[in-house]
Simulated scan of single mutants.
Amino acid sequence: MSERSPFVATNYHPLPVTLARGEGSWVWDVDGRRYLDLLAGYSALNFGHRHPALIQAAKDQLDRLTLTSRAFNSANLAEFCRRLARFCGKEVVLPMNTGAEAVETGIKLARKWGYRVKGVPDGRAEIIVMKGNFHGRTSTIVSFSDDPDARDGYGPYMPGFVSVPYGDVQAVRAAITPHTVAVLFEPIQGEGGVLIPPDGFLRDLRGVCTEHDVLMIADEIQSGLGRTGLPFACDHEDVVPDVYLLGKALGGGIMPVSAVVSDASAMQVFTPGTHGSTFGGNPLAAAIGIAVLDLLEDGEMLENTKRLEPVLREGLEALPADKVTGVRVRGLWAGVDLADRTGRAYSEGLMARGVLCKDTHGRTVRFAPPLTIAEEDLRWALGELAAELG
């Protein structure tokens, strides 16, 4: 049963499968067929479907309090923010809901910091962004997208963004002006096909931002919270940005939870009434977020990811060379470029074999299994990937 309902807007083109149940790394469709999930909700399901500790935290909180609005304090909010700030090595957390809201908040923070702290003339702030970026789909964010599907037809576009080639620190340096307030980037471009920047790029970018008094804002919404085998993708070059943008896995695959995390020197620009969210930091979200941090701080998920990264890499690099033109792997995250078929066709073929994944940009397929995946399940999936290529 996979017919598209006439009542559902057609802004997505899902694979022809209707899922009804999930457990760990596996999901079942409405007819009872089982599939291995190698997409994990674009990293929202880093801990798999219905992780017992996360489900229990949500159930316990449902019996207490779900929402108060930020007009009042709630019991979990301070603890969640304290724990997340400590995990990030920062001082202050501003909780939101979706990843796009976190990005929008980061943009507002950078601009206001530029005016209030750096002394940029009002209305002149510029933010440097990267070509090929994907930070969300709001009207502000698509203003600096170069993906025609995301951008076309939504103008007029918001000014104040300067786009440079991804991974080119000299282009960043050349683009900086006295009005530059921030560089917004993904440490790995997930939607772009798991594109990994050149070695040293993040370290050099950190140096340029410090030199020119520019906020370094890392969108770790997909790449963070264990996906690459470390807490953050920036950690692979021992880089600490000024601002982390977090989401997806922070909600444990249960509800949308996002956050902007920085030191007080940046976050102080937000004062009562200048920014807010009805649901941001609600008691249920905070309880789930605390449980997510418990799992991350335990370290088991990160170790499993590090242990299985070479298994994923070796399996993908062993795919037929005449059928694959590129493979990129970091942690349990991979992009595979196909030579002679579309990513959509390949994804549909894998679906028929009981493996779920997602294409992007024509001939690229992304893989992002839950960090809890068993090695035998991963090896089975790699066998199906090879068999589908023939």
Results as ranks from 00 to 15, higher is better:
99 G>W: 00
104 E>N: 12
118 K>Y: 09
69 S>H: 12
63 D>C: 08
21 R>Y: 03
115 Y>G: 09
50 R>P: 02
47 F>L: 04
123 G>K: 03
130 M>Y: 02
23 E>P: 04
66 T>E: 12
42 Y>D: 14
98 T>K: 04
119 G>V: 09
26 W>H: 11
90 K>F: 04
107 I>N: 00
107 I>R: 03
11 N>D: 13
26 W>N: 05
59 K>C: 07
43 S>W: 01
14 P>M: 08
89 G>M: 05
119 G>F: 07
120 V>N: 00
118 K>L: 08
64 R>Q: 12
67 L>C: 13
81 C>L: 00
74 S>M: 11
124 R>V: 10
68 T>L: 15
25 S>G: 12
64 R>Y: 02
89 G>N: 08
59 K>H: 11
113 W>Q: 00
49 H>L: 09
41 G>I: 01
14 P>K: 05
126 E>W: 00
65 L>M: 05
99 G>T: 10
125 A>D: 01
78 A>V: 13
48 G>S: 04
79 E>G: 09
53 A>E: 13
35 Y>V: 05
81 C>W: 05
12 Y>N: 11
34 R>H: 01
120 V>W: 03
119 G>T: 11
32 G>E: 02
127 I>G: 00
42 Y>V: 12
100 A>E: 15
75 A>V: 15
54 L>P: 02
69 S>T: 15
98 T>Q: 06
92 V>Q: 08
95 P>C: 09
15 L>V: 08
114 G>D: 07
62 L>T: 06
63 D>G: 15
88 C>W: 07
46 N>G: 07
60 D>N: 15
40 A>L: 03
96 M>H: 09
108 K>H: 13
94 L>Q: 06
126 E>V: 04
23 E>Y: 03
27 V>W: 00
68 T>D: 06
78 A>K: 15
53 A>P: 01
122 D>P: 13
39 L>Q: 11
120 V>D: 10
125 A>Q: 04
108 K>R: 13
82 R>M: 12
17 V>W: 00
112 K>T: 14
87 F>I: 00
26 W>D: 02
82 R>H: 12
54 L>G: 08
88 C>N: 05
116 R>V: 12
85 A>L: 11
113 W>L: 07
66 T>N: 14
105 T>N: 06
14 P>I: 02
69 S>M: 14
22 G>F: 06
101 E>H: 08
121 P>Q: 11
32 G>Q: 04
85 A>Q: 10
99 G>E: 08
53 A>D: 12
124 R>T: 08
16 P>R: 02
12 Y>A: 14
44 A>Q: 01
91 E>W: 07
19 L>K: 03
95 P>R: 06
56 Q>V: 07
104 E>K: 06
54 L>M: 09
112 K>D: 11
47 F>V: 03
72 F>S: 15
112 K>E: 15
96 M>K: 14
16 P>L: 07
95 P>M: 06
115 Y>V: 10
55 I>G: 02
21 R>F: 14
19 L>M: 06
88 C>P: 00
20 A>C: 02
119 G>A: 11
70 R>T: 15
115 Y>H: 14
92 V>H: 06
37 D>Q: 09
12 Y>E: 15
